[in-house]
Amino acid sequence: MKLISKLIKFELQNSIRSKWIIVYSLIFFVLTFLLFSFETDSAKASLTLTNLILIVIPLVSIIFGVMFVYNSIEYVQLVLCQPIDRKSLFIGLYLGNTFPLIFGFVLSIILGTLFSGILLSSLKPILITLLIGIFLTLIFTAISFWIGFRIIDKAKGLGTAIILWFSFAVLYDGILLLIIYSFREYPIENFALAACLINPIDLARVFFILDFNIAALMGYTGAVFNKFFGSSLGIIVSFSMLVVWFIIPFLFGMRRFLKKDF
């Protein structure tokens, strides 16, 4: 544990000097501030912000993570020549990469909403937005680590990351829509719901609409829907799935890292 915190410390030293993370945080800060100051309606601002987060955080996290892995190979080699076990190093690398992203994101949202004077008045949607952002960072960084340590070729790895992001963010929903339409004669709501829980971006979106669009969700009479969206079941299930979505790629990435030849 002490070792992991040391490794995280080095990573943080490293990333604080990287301009990327500052730019990333600044963009979120300015966006949040502008959105909440100039948008008369905080509900809409929060919707816009979340929509943005659903797109930007997965993209940034996955690209940032893959690049980070490729840029860290020498560092990893250096550290692995020291009396350090690989598991600690992996956790250290992972947290060292996600902490600044999460910290930058959370801080800029909180400051942005604080300066525009909206933080306390709409605390709940902001907390949900933060939670979604944190989970998406954790999930997509875990995925990127898996890709990075699995695919040796940088260009191939980066390409895979972008394709994966595009599939999760856009393509998946398009295909899902197509399937729902093709099978509309059949009871397909279970499938539609399950399909949303399988894609992490959809999952985060569902988590958000559970709070934000609940009135509309209640307009659909399907029993499964009503049970899922109408009770705390939806929150529990989607939250657990978010956790699962974090754990699985993380473990796969770690397993890969433990076996990898450097």
């Binding site: 990333s15 000097r17 840029n71 020498e74 560092y75």
Partner: peptide, 9 residues
Amino acid sequence: PQLSNFPEN
């Protein structure tokens, strides 16, 4: 090592 690289920053 043959080629030495260290954290850039």
